[in-house]
């Protein structure tokens, strides 16, 4: 049942992000809701769910849009896994923690992506990438991160103590 919910979220997010959200782009940059959802689940549900979501969402994006399969899957997988590692080590109700992780993960994603593109033989100016993609997307992601995190938290809150087994 929980798997079904996750798959639904993966597909819904992908469809909305590639279609409706594109209409709300600022200077052609759209928010990366994928990364926010992965981080929200990784923080709340740990590394297993985080890395599973990462790999599925990344693969879907790779299969539909890019010629090379696996780049996004690998990066999102790492992000989901690494952030899932801090599950139970941080105070999760603090919104600043979420903002911090979103910022770090967005930058991490683009650096890793840049590295892959460099080794796959695509010349892209590093400074331009930083100015345009990272700066805009960072702001956009940070703005959206807290509402999405709170939403996921509300929808998927598991009871901490259960006496019914």
């Amino acid at each position: 049942m929980r798997l079904l919910y996750l798959l639904l979220i993966i597909i819904l997010n992908f469809i909305l992000q590639t279609t409706v959200f594109q209409s709300f782009s600022i200077d052609n940059v759209v928010p990366n809701t994928t990364i926010i959802i992965i981080i929200a689940f990784a923080l709340l549900k740990g590394k297993k769910v985080g890395s599973f979501l990462g790999i599925c969402m990344g693969l879907l994006q790779d299969i539909i849009f890019s010629e090379v399969i696996g780049v996004n899957a690998l990066i999102y997988f790492f992000i989901g896994y690494l952030i899932g590692l801090v599950d139970n080590k941080v105070f999760k109700d603090n919104s600043w923690i979420v903002v911090f992780f979103i910022a770090v993960a967005t930058i991490f994603y683009h650096f890793l992506f840049y590295m892959f593109m460099y080794f796959l033989g695509l010349e892209i100016s590093f400074i331009n990438m930083f100015k345009k993609v990272i700066a805009f997307e960072l702001i956009y992601n940070i703005i959206l991160s807290v509402p999405i995190y709170k939403g996921v938290n509300k929808l998927f809150k598991s009871p901490k103590l259960s006496f019914r087994g």
Binding site: Q17, F21, Q22, N32, Q61, I64, F65, F113
Partner: peptide, 14 residues
Amino acid sequence: IIGKDSDNWFDRVI
């Protein structure tokens, strides 16, 4: 056109 790439890196469409 029915979809645009979402990673802000490329101009690819479906």
